[in-house]
Amino acid sequence: MTIFSFWIFDRHCNCIYSREWTQVLNPATESSGTINAKANEDNAKLLFGVLFSLRNIARKVGDTPEQENTLNSFATAKYRAHFYESPSGLRLCILSDLETQNLQTQLRDVYSNIYVEHIVKNPLSPVDFKPGSKITNQRFIRLVDRYLGPQ
């Protein structure tokens, strides 16, 4: 099971956190990959667009009067993307390899145990992130890394 990257989009569709893991460890920082480096790039917007469109299709085709349909994941021949949307409109996404089948519980865990605990309940963290601003809370970053990052 390999996780390539992790993304958070807020309810205004901005990417507020991105984390990419690489196989090579950077000795200077004791960690690998990049944090919040890709958020302003086109990739974040493309990913958001794909998730948004597919979620709309899922809801249009699969909604029933009793229950909303939710998008769980999509896959290409090379990677799989897992998607979770919180009731408040926060969207979390993980890109992983194809062997990883279902990360819904992990995404929900990251949301309820890490995001809610350290961003929502943190009085110093803004309620709404301004366009361009990112999650820089070190504790949040560390916990996400420990939970999702390579062991």
């Binding site: 597919l54 299709i57 899922a58 699969g62 349909n69 998008l71 999509f74 896959a75 290409t76 021949a77």
Partner: peptide
């Protein structure tokens, strides 16, 4: 289809 979208999984259907 070697790198494009291949499958979509939702609660109610797969594509």
């Amino acid at each position: 289809n070697t790198s494009g979208l291949k499958s979509i999984e939702t609660d109610k259907f797969s594509m």
